[in-house]
Design a protein around this nucleic acid. Sequence first.
DNA 1: ATAGATGCAAACTCTTTGCAGGTCG
DNA 2: CGACCTGCAAAGAGTTTGCATCTAT
Lengths: 159, 159
Amino acid sequence: MIPNKDRGFDTLRARGLRLTRPRRLILDVVRATDAHPTAAFVYQRVRRRLPRVSLATVHRNLRMLAAEGFLAERADAGGMRFDGNTAPHDHFTCLACGRIYDVPGRTERSVRRRVAAPIGFEVLEHRTEYYGRCVACRRQRGRPPVTQYRRSYGRPQGH
Amino acid sequence: MIPNKDRGFDTLRARGLRLTRPRRLILDVVRATDAHPTAAFVYQRVRRRLPRVSLATVHRNLRMLAAEGFLAERADAGGMRFDGNTAPHDHFTCLACGRIYDVPGRTERSVRRRVAAPIGFEVLEHRTEYYGRCVACRRQRGRPPVTQYRRSYGRPQGH
DNA sequence: ATAGATGCAAACTCTTTGCAGGTCG
DNA sequence: CGACCTGCAAAGAGTTTGCATCTAT
């Protein structure tokens, strides 16, 4: 992955792509947060300054910007999430509050070789996902790891 | 994660859950493949033997079986995928053919400490995702990493 | 001027839910 | 028998697309 700085907007234009106001703003919004926002979140933020922007435009641009390497995207239950930090790094998802934290990242070649060598696969990218409880949630003792599901599979239930 | 063997069906009954024919079959189908199937895939397979089963039932059961620890689920662009192998292991996704391979897995404590120690997070789970090209696809020289997106963002295009 | 972008609304895909009837234990 | 499950159909949530209009270059 190429770090942000290396991706000037000339790269965009060179590909016949334009730097429109909505597009620029969408990219700014994603880069301005480390909350790994959803399309809906970006949409809301963008509309504060450009109220006429449509959700479709936000989706189109997020998809495009990710494809062109200006930001990273990752699938998540409940939708895609985007990340303005395109430098290699890992993620920690807190099972209690759901927040996703950036983690320094492990880029060592040894990690990739581990996979490549034995089976002959060519590793282009790798990322580690951690799950647990963040400092804040650990302090709130009682707070249980979010149950992620209703214990009723097909019928409501008082809880 | 608790390995398959430790999860007898008694565990189910002990929780007041039943082992119905659809449920049993759904679990069998997921466990019988290492292709990390989608709900739709499981649905098709299940219907070969129980033609009356509905897609909703497949979803309900996959969600439940995952929640109870009988199988693992992971979000993926294009839907959830399920994995009958609940022992800790990693995944390699081939960008050319899209197949997901199981990889031996890295369970060392050192990996978790790396995150836990510096920031005070409690790591309960961790998994590494690799992306690249599998042996088969490397042999077919020409085969390019699937473009994942259409180079048109809002208009069709001959390609 | 013109290829590329946008807004709007409709279409799609995947998943969940309400409900009446069926079934496991 | 009673709690749990299921099928069916309808509703949701998130994302994509057709098309006429607009705009960056």
